[in-house]
């Protein structure tokens, strides 16, 4: 049933002409997707999809709409060709999937070759019961280094395109001024933000045992500061966490990750070899995973903040059409 809802929300996105509606619908879409992913046992993925798809993406899209306007122009012509291209693509994929093993069948090739070994030996070899974390940070830790680098790249891309740290004139409303005249908000914020940071730490360290890890923790950490900025104003937030510091965080996380890898190399192992990080290989694994997750968290938090500063620092331009 969830799948049907998923499809319905996607179709609603096609139909909607108001871009705010599109953004809200895409948030809903992501939540349904996250729920569906939980049903499919992918709890880590679901958690990330919820925080990324429904959280970050929605905020980013809304921020963009604030700067660019929210009505989509009516298409000038009936687009037949795009439909054909899309259908042809799906057609090839349907052709392909007709031959794959039946859904949920444990005898499929995918469940036979590489994966069983992760499930059998990961706990023993790395001491981490969450196999997803073990594979992510250790077995395929190099992919995750690449992934962190992708976020880093996006971060410096956004800084290059939009710039951070330009002074915004204080305004009564909007991202510059915040809402500090509301006493209740201020008090609640002061109460909530420490908990948000605490929660981030919990997610960071709990990643070994349950769903969570550096990426989610970084997002929550950044969300804490963004919340602060929304209530107390961008200028105050930038005093608390200056743009230059954000830039350094963006770079620092990737550097930490890559250096953990290099450390393995210097201690006589291959690149990203955590076994050599301690006398006891399992401890070494633990230590390696801890530090690379810390690296991920730092870069993710930095990039999220950089993106927030970059978008919030832009001024709204008048629409040429109206």
């Amino acid at each position: 049933m969830l799948l049907v809802l998923l499809l319905a929300s996607a179709l609603a996105i096609v139909r909607a002409r108001n871009l705010f509606a599109v953004v809200v619908l895409s948030g809903i879409y992501s939540f349904i997707m996250a729920t569906q992913l939980t049903v499919l046992d992918a709890v880590d993925v679901a958690m990330t999809e919820a925080s990324v798809g429904a959280g970050i993406s929605t905020v980013l899209l809304l921020g963009t709409l604030y700067l660019t306007g929210s009505e989509e122009a009516a298409p000038g012509h009936r687009p037949i060709l795009p439909l054909l291209v899309a259908l042809a693509t799906a057609g090839i994929l349907i052709y392909g999937t007709l031959g794959i093993p039946v859904f949920g069948d444990p005898s499929g090739a995918i469940h036979q070759h590489v994966a069983p070994r992760y499930l059998q030996e990961a706990v023993e070899a790395t001491g981490i019961p969450n196999v997803v974390t073990a594979v992510l940070a250790s077995y395929r830790g190099y992919d995750t280094l690449g992934e962190t680098t992708v976020i880093f790249t996006a971060g410096i891309g956004v800084i290059l395109l939009l710039g951070i740290g330009r002074r915004v004139r204080e305004r009564a409303q909007g991202p510059g001024g915040g809402m500090q005249e509301y006493l209740v908000l201020r008090v609640i914020a002061k109460l909530l933000i420490p908990f948000a940071l605490l929660f981030a730490l919990y997610v960071q360290f709990h990643g070994d045992f349950g769903p969570g890890g550096g990426f989610q923790a970084g997002v929550i950490l950044a969300a804490g500061v963004i919340f602060y900025a929304v209530i107390f104003g961008l200028t105050k937030a930038q005093k608390l966490v200056p743009p230059r510091l954000v830039e350094i965080l963006v770079a620092l996380g990737v550097a930490v990750y890559a250096l953990v890898g290099a450390l393995g190399l210097m201690l006589g192992g291959n690149y990203l070899d955590y076994f050599v990080l301690d006398h006891d290989p399992v401890h070494g694994q633990h230590r390696g995973v801890f530090w690379v997750e810390a690296g991920v968290c730092i870069t993710v938090a930095g990039v999220m903040l950089a993106i927030f500063y970059a978008f919030a620092g832009r001024r709204r331009r008048p629409d040429s059409r109206s």
């Binding site: 990330t48 999809e49 590489v114 196999v131 594979v135 992510l136 395929r140 992934e147 990426f215």
Partner: peptide, 15 residues
Amino acid sequence: YSNPLPHVLILTAIV
């Protein structure tokens, strides 16, 4: 247990 590898790959893809 369900297969962890696709989860890892898709975490990367989402990011």
